[in-house]
């Protein structure tokens, strides 16, 4: 049991406005940040596609270091227990319908 716990970690994760927050636990240290983000999007009910069905690109910001994590970083290398992460997407607003392109 203790061995399994040592192979996993837990974090506090929120969206950009801070209105949606979760505690993630049992995250394998060997997983990548990209895998973690994918799992979090599903479990937090965050939109995965934009209004035209294209995938939304989210980045995880590690608040302790004030930087966005790279998707290929290993959770066990980049993160510490109880770190705070913020998930932020690149997302479009605009009046494309107004100009027809």
């Amino acid at each position: 049991m203790a061995e399994a716990a040592a192979m996993t970690m837990g974090f506090r994760v929120s969206d950009v406005s801070g209105q949606n927050a979760v505690r993630a636990s049992g995250v394998p240290r060997s997983s990548t940040v990209g895998e973690l983000v994918d799992g979090l999007l599903a479990k937090m009910g965050l939109a995965r596609i934009d209004s035209e069905g294209r995938p939304l690109n989210y980045q995880a910001r590690l608040e302790r270091e004030g930087r966005h994590l790279h998707g290929s970083e290993r959770v066990g290398d980049a993160l510490q227990e109880d770190d705070e992460l913020t998930l932020a997407p690149n997302i479009d607003a605009g009046g494309k319908e107004g100009v027809g392109f």
Partner: peptide, 14 residues
Amino acid sequence: AKLTFTADTWAAVR
């Protein structure tokens, strides 16, 4: 006709 808010945008606002 488009404005893209990036992950850096939200970090700066926070």
